[in-house]
Structure formats: structure tokens, C-alpha cells
Design a protein around this nucleic acid. Structure first.
Lengths: 188, 188
DNA sequence: TCCTTCTATGCAACTCGTTGCATAGACAAG
DNA sequence: CTTGTCTATGCAACGAGTTGCATAGAAGGA
């Protein structure tokens, strides 16, 4: 039930609406968690019922009203409990890796375009993360490091950057392998 | 529904029972997919019903009988269809990253032991992958590269190795950050 | 005026995945 | 001869996550 905790962390960093959370989850926070708006709305409702969050109706001009959520004392306590409980190291589910192994039973060369497309997505994500890092942490206009939260957000972002760099390098390796197999001929 | 396809690939590489699949998924294949035995048994049953797999009762000595599954023509065709369909680049769900950002609202130093534990797990996984690479691909006793399947399995394994190396380096970065915050004092 | 886009929220149905439990044969240790 | 471990399969219940659909206010362009 880690979506609950991801929501608690995000709302502690800054209160917001379900819609805003959904955008955070698909943008900046995208490098460590994902969730659709339907899932977020449902969990937000449950967390309010459980007393972990507070809702506040906010009237807006030029756009529909929204509900702003913030974390209550019990919500913060629930997060603290989770933070002190050990978690299982994550395990990956990487569809593309399944495809690559599966290509042995089809045409490996047919995968080249697909792998190139994925590499481009990861290049774009890397550029996005690097721009965010420059803006928020290392650039001339970035605020001076003052609190632990900023340092911790930065180290998580560095993780995202390292992940994208590693992935791009690996996809280059995959492409080189696919080209080698193509040159060796389909019968080899 | 990518578990279906992961099972098809694994059974094409070598037919086996549900139990064997579960062990493959938690061991060698663990670096690109995970699944519990309950999930595997359920999906195997459905895939037989759908005509994608064949079952064969195998009597064994010294252990209970098993059901060996293998891929049918339609199963192979279903895999080929999926291989030619583009997939979404994966997105991560990294609980530990949520914890690290959440630590800003608790005691960052309390996370050090947890992060060190995760680093150890990733060191162990890396050692396991490297041993497998030496045994199956780069060692003196490894079979000479002959077919595409072997090359593709190797490049996926290299991906797992790169992932573990990247993760260990990042966790070192996280630990350095946590120690810096601890030295700066809880009030900083 | 109508159409599209962006903001904003939500229901219903379904599939995927996890957890707990249950069974059972074979072997080894005590 | 009981207990524990490994192999082997499976059900039932629940919770997590996805997909499709629906609504609605406000802005801007055709």
C-alpha cells in the first residue's frame, strides 16, 4: 500500500488537489512512482475517511473549484510508522527485456525500431531531469541548500538521472547486439 | 498482461512445470520479471484453456509428479503478435525513493541502516549475476556463442548487471547524503 | 455558436497481483 | 515416529491497478 505513503510525502512537501497530485505523479515524481488520477482520487477519499488527510474546498477564478488535501497529525504518524518499518528491495518488471529474450523466437532485427523508440524516450526523460536539476538544485537561480528536504529530493533526482543514463547505455548495447545478429544473418 | 508473454518466452527457452517457472522467476529471470507461484499456476491454467500451452503429466522418482508445460503453435503466434506491437516504456515504482523523500519529515539518520541493508541485497544480486555470466557466457567452460537466443539472454543479463551497479553507486550517494545531514545536525 | 482544450472530479467494471491457507509425496534428522 | 524441509499444486479472499465512461466549468478559436 505504498501509494498511500507516496501521497503523504507529496502532500507534506506541498498540499494540493487530486488533479495536481496526478500531474506531479506523471511528471517530476514520475521517476520514482506512477499512478493514474482514478487511483489517486479513490485513495484520497479513503485516506480522508481514515483521518489521515484533511480536505478543504478552494474556489478558483478562471477554472473549476478544487479540493485541497493536506496531511493531518495521524497521517504524519502513519508515515512515520512506515518509515521505520523495513521494506523489501524492489524487483523490476521490464517488458522490453521480455521482448528482447522473446525475439530469439521471432525476428531479432524487427525489434530495432522499438528499441530505438525506447531509447529516445529515455533520452527525453534524462533531458527533463537534467533541466529540473539545473533549475532547482545546481543552477545559478537555484535556492541555496537550506533544509534536509531539498537535499533528499536532489539525491532522489540524481537516482533518476543515473537510471536514465544507465538505461540509455544498455539500450545502445542492445542495439549493437541486434545489429550484430542481423549482420550474421537470420539463419545463424 | 505481460506475465503471459514472460511465461511463453520462458517455456520456449525450456519447457517446465509451474514450480520450475516460479523458481526461474525468482532466480535467474528475477532481474527482469517477478511472479508468485499462485499467479503462475492461475495463468498457466488459463493459457491451457486458451490453447496457448500444452500440459503433460510427468511421473518422477523421489519427488511428487509434475505437470510439464510447453508452448503450442497458437501460443507462439500470440507471442509473435505481442512482439510486433509497440509497448509503453516502463515506469518505476521505487518504495525506497519514497522513503528517502519522506525522511525529510522524520529522522533522516534513522534510514541509514535500511539503505545499507538494501545496498547489501543489491551487492548480493550483482555477485549472483556476475557468477551466472561467468558460468554461462564469458567463462572458460561457457558454451561457444552459437545462437541468437544465447546472445539475447546475455544482453539482458548485462542489463541486470548494469542496473545493480548503478543502484549500488546511487545508494552510496544516498548514504553520503544521509551522513552529511546527520553531521549537520537535526535542526539544520 | 460550436468545437476543442485544459482544469477538475468521480463511478463502474474488470483484470492483475498478493496473502493466507490447504494438501500431499518423498526424504533426512532427531 | 515425529518434525522439518523440499518438491509440487491449488483455492479463496482481498487489495491494487487499469480502462472506459461520464460530468462540468472556463477559455479560446473557427
Amino acid at each position: 500500500m505504498a501509494l498511500d505513503h507516496a501521497i503523504l510525502v507529496s502532500l507534506l512537501e506541498r498540499p494540493g488537489s487530486g488533479y495536481e497530485l496526478a500531474r506531479r505523479f506523471e511528471r517530476s515524481i514520475g521517476h520514482f512512482w506512477t499512478a493514474t488520477h482514478q487511483q489517486i482520487y479513490r485513495v484520497l477519499g479513503r485516506m480522508v475517511t481514515d483521518g489521515l488527510l484533511l480536505v478543504r474546498e478552494v474556489e478558483q477564478q478562471g477554472r473549476p473549484d478544487k479540493k485541497e488535501y493536506s496531511v493531518t497529525g495521524p497521517g504524519r504518524a502513519a508515515l512515520a510508522v512506515w518509515l521505520h518499518k523495513p521494506i523489501e528491495p524492489e524487483s523490476l518488471r521490464h517488458d522490453l527485456a521480455v521482448k528482447i529474450r522473446g525475439a530469439a523466437f521471432d525476428d531479432p532485427a524487427a525489434l530495432i525500431a522499438e528499441v530505438e523508440r525506447h531509447r529516445q524516450v529515455h533520452r527525453d526523460r534524462l533531458a527533463h531531469y537534467l533541466a529540473g536539476e539545473l533549475r532547482d538544485f545546481t543552477g545559478p537561480d537555484a535556492p541555496a541548500p537550506q533544509d534536509a528536504g531539498q537535499e533528499l529530493q536532489h539525491v532522489v533526482l540524481r537516482g533518476g538521472i543515473a537510471y536514465e543514463r544507465m538505461t540509455i547505455a544498455w539500450l545502445d548495447d542492445v542495439l549493437a547486439t541486434l545489429h550484430r545478429l542481423e549482420a550474421a544473418g537470420p539463419g545463424a
